[in-house]
Design a protein around this nucleic acid. Structure first.
Length: 417
RNA sequence: CGGGCCGUCGUAUAGUGGUAGUACGCGUGCUUUGGGAGCACGUAGUCCCAGUUCGAUUCUGGGCGGCCCGACCA
């Protein structure tokens, strides 16, 4: 896309009401727009990143047998009353409203109840299991305090997958598969080196759960980390008993701040029993389905990437999530040859299926470079009088910085490598 | 929900009980053109409602909104 046509603009300064690095940079670069506290719109560049994050997650979920669907955000109280979670005592972040004709309605905070009820219509035999179902859905949570930019908002998209298994062993097997898939996701999203599977509390549903914690001072959580063994423990379950179980001791652990980018946990039969999701086993006995729940917030993951990888000049997107694979910059001034060569290159990239953000604007070089650094597209191509004279294109990566002149006859090969 | 701080052009800031200033942005023109250019002219603002006052952007009260710390966070 031609940058001259992009409706967003970069800003030199961050708005004073944002302190979080992720929000400051994403707003300055034109990726997001704050509508109100805890609610951000995604602008063209931001949406492209969000879609890339979701694509990675979708691919990895499909690999382990996930089936995608989309449940509604509007929630009927009926199913929640069955599980006892309609009560504000049970879930205090409900956004509730009324129908015109009378009757209550909730905006989904999570989707265990409706999906369990839905599955009950289709699952009746052991032959119908196991099943793994997920969605990307907007969640609404009336947080007392939204904070940290896009990390903790009142409206956000969540990938939530639910597993439906016949036995504890079958559940366990998928649980571990999913943990592996999560690590693959965070690796592809560029924060693999910083992200650790972390032993955590199971809250009200089970004894334990696993969080995926990305090391960052911007994090809300404190974890105790054994880097060598890549084992981590959330502070909330940092007890001698847990450490003994994991075979580690306090002395070998470091205390670090981290962002929870994913969480997987067993649900047992808590919801299947409440909502009548059962199956008949081989002997004809009726049994409740064993469930698990697996969440990742794509928006929070996007914010985490910014928090961890950004430098003093701006955002640094890993190639798989970069809004465009290539940022093509023309330093033309009034030189028509440079302009023509940049146009030609832009078309060439397009013909080869490489989408570029093409900075064809009539502004000075310094401003283009500053904007490119801020926006953070992973690969930069520069065309100028200098590169024209050298018979090539200047290529550099946002993360590493060094530049190289690549002959324009081999540029496509070079980029596809 | 407890505590604290804060609302001034689009953005960031200064200032005042009596005509609201600066920078960036935006517009026009000329010059400039590989790291956020220069000059000139122009554009645009005191969150809302009361109260005090001759007069409130400034003081007082209320409202709305925002941020931070804590609590909370399947």
């Amino acid at each position: 896309m031609r940058q001259s046509q992009l409706f967003t603009k970069t800003r030199r300064e961050a708005p004073k009401d944002e302190v979080a690095k992720n929000a400051q940079l994403l707003i300055r670069a034109g990726f997001i727009h704050k509508e109100m506290a805890g609610a951000y719109s995604y602008l063209p560049l931001g949406l492209r990143v969000l879609n890339n994050v979701q694509r990675i997650i979708r691919e990895e979920m499909n690999k382990i047998g996930g089936q995608e669907l989309a449940l509604t955000a509007l929630q009927s109280p009926a199913v929640w009353k069955k599980s006892g979670r309609w009560d504000d005592e049970a879930i205090d972040v409900w956004f509730k409203t009324q129908l015109k004709g009378g009757g209550e309605l909730g905006l989904g905070t999570t989707h265990e109840e409706p999906l369990t009820a839905l599955m009950a219509e289709y699952v009746s035999s052991y032959k119908d299991l196991p099943r793994y179902v997920y969605q990307f859905q907007t969640k609404f949570r009336n947080e007392l305090r939204a904070k940290s930019g896009i990390m903790r908002t009142r409206e956000f998209i969540m990938k939530d997958l639910y597993s439906f298994s016949r036995s504890e062993d079958e559940f366990r097997e998928f649980y571990e598969d999913c943990a592996e898939a999560y690590l693959a996701i965070f690796k592809r999203a560029g924060i693999g080196d910083y992200t650790f599977r972390t032993f955590a509390s199971g809250g009200s549903f089970s004894k334990f759960s696993d969080e995926f914690q990305a090391l960052s001072d911007a994090g809300e959580d404190t974890i105790y980390l054994h880097r060598g063994k890549r084992i981590a423990v959330n502070r909330e379950v940092y007890t001698d008993g847990v450490l003994a179980e994991l075979g580690i001791s306090k002395g070998e652990l470091e205390e670090v701040k981290a962002i929870e980018v994913g969480n997987i946990f067993p649900l047992g039969t808590r919801f299947s029993e409440a909502l009548g999701l059962t199956f008949k086993d081989e002997t004809g006995a009726e049994k409740p389905v064993i469930m698990g729940s697996y969440g990742i917030g794509p928006g929070r993951l996007m914010g985490t990437i910014v928090e961890i990888l950004a430098d003093d000049k701006g955002i640094v997107w890993p190639s798989e999530v970069s809004p465009f694979p290539v940022h093509l910059i023309a330093i033309a001034g009034s030189n028509k040859d440079v302009r023509a060569e940049a146009d030609r290159l832009y078309d060439l990239l397009k013909e080869n299926g490489i989408e570029a953000l093409y900075d064809d604007r009539d502004i000075r070089a310094g401003e283009k470079f500053a904007d490119a650094d801020l926006i953070g597209i992973s690969t930069r191509l520069v065309v100028s009088e200098k590169t024209l004279a050298e018979g090539g294109v200047e290529v550099s990566s946002r993360s590493e910085g060094q530049t190289a002149i690549v002959p324009d006859s081999t540029i496509i090969q070079h980029l596809k490598r």
